[in-house]
Simulated assay, not measured.
Amino acid sequence: MHARIIRAVLALYPAAIRERYGDEIAELLATSDTPARDLVDTARCALRDRLTQRTEAMTVAQARIAGVTLIKLVAAPFMFGVLLLALMVTAGLAADVTGAHEAAPYWGTLAVALAVASMWWFGRWMAHSGPIVAATVVVPAALALGVAGINAVPRVGDVLGAVRAGSLAAVACWAVGATGLGWAVSVLLRRGRRAAAWLSGGTGALLLLDAVTAVYVFTALPPERAPRHNAPLWYLSTMSWWDPGLVDGAYRQLQDSIKMLPPVLTMCTVFLLAVVGVTASRSRLAT
């Protein structure tokens, strides 16, 4: 078995267990006759030990703080959406005041960019304000639950996609992909490989968001309306006002269907990476 894979799995263990049994576990994995199964079992045990260790050490006060943090994370997508709407309305008003209506798409794109960029600051602030247990799992799950909750509200949920089944499928895929992305970035940061962590994080985020946008379109729109060969352009189109007729051969038809889902999931992704960056760096300093 590849040494890098073994080291990545060992990184899941708490530091004390890793220092005491790491060499023994690595040797067993390296000489295993069933490497895939043993690797999965080892990863499962490592996550269980890490969660158990943190749970046992948690006081009542810490548990209360963790509960409040979880509620904040679930509610965060609603705040993201409000911020995005406020910026987009402001952009529209700016276009009206200046009379440059032809520049409205650029104002809208700027509003989305500002909303996404602000998530980096917000995520770092939240991570510094209190520890988040198992952030690479808890944060994506909580954010996905929040987005799904918004989507389930009648009328309000329509802002995250005209076809609810497509939105929920995209959110579910995002949660799984974001968990893997956060874990990969966390492992690299704990090893001190910051450049590799952020390069893979940025690239992985773009690929993930492109994929979940495609999941929505595949679920919500038939091929005759949204030709599948345009899939690489869907995410770019939904994040801007550029649309060469990707759906029904008409301008903005894709945006009218998917609405604010891609920008909100992009904000969630940037928020996740910011949180993981702080928590992983803190863990590395602690060890």
Rank of each mutant, 00 (worst) to 15 (best):
D49Y: 15
F78V: 11
T52K: 06
R54L: 08
V116Y: 01
T109Y: 12
W121Q: 12
M88T: 12
A66N: 06
L51Q: 13
W121H: 13
A113H: 10
R124F: 11
A134F: 03
A91W: 00
I71Q: 12
V89S: 09
M88V: 11
A95W: 01
A75P: 04
M119A: 11
L51H: 09
V137D: 04
M79K: 05
W125C: 06
L87I: 07
R124L: 06
A144F: 11
D96M: 08
A117Q: 05
D49I: 03
T136L: 06
T136V: 07
A113L: 15
V137E: 08
Q62N: 07
Y106C: 03
A61T: 10
I65F: 03
T59E: 01
M88F: 07
P105W: 02
W121E: 02
W125T: 14
R64P: 03
T90E: 06
A75K: 01
F80M: 13
A134Y: 05
F122Y: 05
V68S: 12
T52V: 07
A104N: 14
A76D: 00
G108M: 14
A95Q: 02
A94G: 09
A46S: 09
S118D: 05
K72A: 14
A134V: 09
P77R: 01
M88H: 13
I71K: 11
A127K: 02
A91H: 00
L114Q: 04
G99E: 06
K72L: 14
T55W: 04
M126W: 06
A61K: 07
A113N: 09
A144M: 11
F80K: 00
E56C: 03
V97D: 05
A100E: 14
Q62W: 02
V139Y: 09
A135M: 05
R124W: 07
R64H: 07
S118W: 15
E56R: 08
E102N: 12
A57S: 03
W107F: 15
D96T: 13
T55F: 05
G92F: 00
F80Q: 03
I71V: 15
L84T: 02
T90Y: 07
L73D: 06
A103G: 10
T69H: 04
A91Q: 02
P131A: 06
